[in-house]
Computed example of a mutant assay.
Amino acid sequence: MLLSVCIPVYNFDVRGLVFDLKREISVNGVDAEIILIDDASDEGFKNIHQILQTEVENFICLEKNIGRSRIRNLFQNYASGKYLLFLDCDGKITEADFLKNYTDFIQKHPDTDVIYGGRTVSVSAPDDDHYLRWKFSVERENLPLEFRLNKPYLSFQTNNFVIKKNVFEKVDFNPAFQKYGYEDLLFAMDMKSAQIKIDHISNSIVNNDLESNAVYLDKVGESVESLATMLKDKNLAEKLSEVKLVKLYSGLPFKPLFELILGDFTLKVLKKKLSKGRVNLRYLDLYKLGLLIKKMK
């Protein structure tokens, strides 16, 4: 088996993604299997996914939620492919040769260890209530290939990547961090420390589930909390020193002054402004910085 498609599932209807993958496997004759692990989703999603039990190679349902890092590591126990392709469950495939693009690259570059294909969102702006996450994706995450090639580790994300199984057995996700945020960059920097090259290609998947501004801001808070925990570990802090927010925090000339300026009142004002959606992302940068200063106390 060349490729194991690994999809962690949590409270999202993954049927469309699975059937699109199965269709390409059949049409293009791709040597691939599909594995799903449900991280203790609500019963409603478990019920609608019953149909997938006979449609994929393996569908494991966990009784307790184990988080974003551990569930990805768990796929090593079930995947039989030489390479593992990790996809987020809220992804949507728009390329007819999506899997074939990866397998062709592997065949042309048999020494490749990790491949990141990229991500995108709808070109049409959503309503104001969902605008902030969309704007962040467009301006900060959905980077063109030429930019990603210049910063292969900082541009890496976990929504759509291939990794050789024996490499993943050596460098996997840090199980200490289960919440949302920065686990992908930590994983990338662990690979950088281990001198594992990340190849980048143009083979994006569409993020099919933009959160509301309120939900996204809650996730921003969770991500900054995770980052603060990482930075309190000197070994991890060194690995994350290139991250934009970390560089901004580390470069503050007089932190007590900024702690005062970006205190609780300012954070409330910024959050209220950001919740409207259509704002400059510099306000989001200030909000994150204020949260990080608070969490690092």
Rank of each mutant, 00 (worst) to 15 (best):
residue 170 K to E: 10
residue 170 K to T: 09
residue 171 V to E: 02
residue 172 D to E: 04
residue 175 P to A: 12
residue 175 P to L: 07
residue 177 F to S: 06
residue 177 F to K: 03
residue 178 Q to Y: 01
residue 179 K to L: 08
residue 181 G to Q: 00
residue 181 G to I: 06
residue 184 D to F: 00
residue 184 D to Q: 01
residue 184 D to I: 00
residue 185 L to F: 06
residue 185 L to M: 04
residue 185 L to N: 04
residue 185 L to H: 02
residue 186 L to Q: 02
residue 187 F to Q: 05
residue 188 A to F: 06
residue 188 A to C: 13
residue 191 M to P: 09
residue 191 M to R: 02
residue 191 M to K: 04
residue 192 K to H: 04
residue 193 S to Y: 05
residue 194 A to Y: 02
residue 194 A to N: 12
residue 196 I to S: 09
residue 199 D to V: 07
residue 200 H to V: 12
residue 201 I to G: 14
residue 202 S to Q: 11
residue 203 N to Q: 06
residue 204 S to E: 11
residue 204 S to R: 04
residue 205 I to C: 11
residue 205 I to M: 13
residue 206 V to F: 08
residue 208 N to Y: 09
residue 208 N to L: 10
residue 211 E to I: 11
residue 212 S to F: 07
residue 212 S to G: 15
residue 212 S to K: 04
residue 216 Y to E: 05
residue 218 D to I: 09
residue 219 K to W: 02
residue 221 G to H: 03
residue 222 E to M: 08
residue 222 E to R: 09
residue 222 E to V: 02
residue 224 V to C: 14
residue 224 V to H: 08
residue 224 V to A: 14
residue 225 E to F: 11
residue 226 S to H: 00
residue 227 L to V: 06
residue 227 L to A: 12
residue 227 L to D: 07
residue 228 A to Q: 00
residue 229 T to Q: 12
residue 229 T to P: 04
residue 229 T to V: 09
residue 231 L to I: 00
residue 231 L to Y: 04
residue 232 K to S: 13
residue 232 K to L: 07
residue 232 K to C: 11
residue 234 K to F: 02
residue 234 K to D: 12
residue 235 N to H: 07
residue 235 N to C: 15
residue 237 A to Q: 07
residue 237 A to T: 03
residue 238 E to I: 05
residue 238 E to D: 11
residue 241 S to G: 10
residue 242 E to S: 15
residue 245 L to H: 05
residue 246 V to A: 13
residue 248 L to H: 02
residue 248 L to P: 03
residue 249 Y to R: 05
residue 251 G to P: 09
residue 252 L to F: 12
residue 252 L to S: 10
residue 253 P to S: 14
residue 253 P to V: 10
residue 253 P to M: 08
residue 253 P to K: 06
residue 253 P to G: 13
residue 254 F to I: 00
residue 254 F to L: 03
residue 254 F to R: 00
residue 255 K to Q: 14
residue 255 K to D: 15
residue 255 K to G: 15
residue 256 P to D: 10
residue 256 P to A: 14
residue 256 P to W: 05
residue 256 P to H: 08
residue 261 I to E: 03
residue 261 I to G: 13
residue 265 F to E: 11
residue 267 L to G: 13
residue 267 L to M: 14
residue 267 L to A: 12
residue 268 K to H: 08
residue 271 K to S: 13
residue 273 K to E: 03
residue 273 K to I: 05
residue 274 L to A: 05
residue 275 S to L: 12
residue 276 K to H: 13
residue 277 G to C: 07
residue 277 G to D: 07
residue 278 R to M: 12
residue 278 R to L: 12
residue 279 V to M: 03
residue 279 V to N: 05
residue 282 R to V: 10
residue 282 R to N: 14
residue 283 Y to E: 07
residue 283 Y to F: 13
residue 283 Y to V: 01
residue 287 Y to Q: 01
residue 288 K to E: 15
residue 289 L to Q: 03
residue 289 L to W: 00
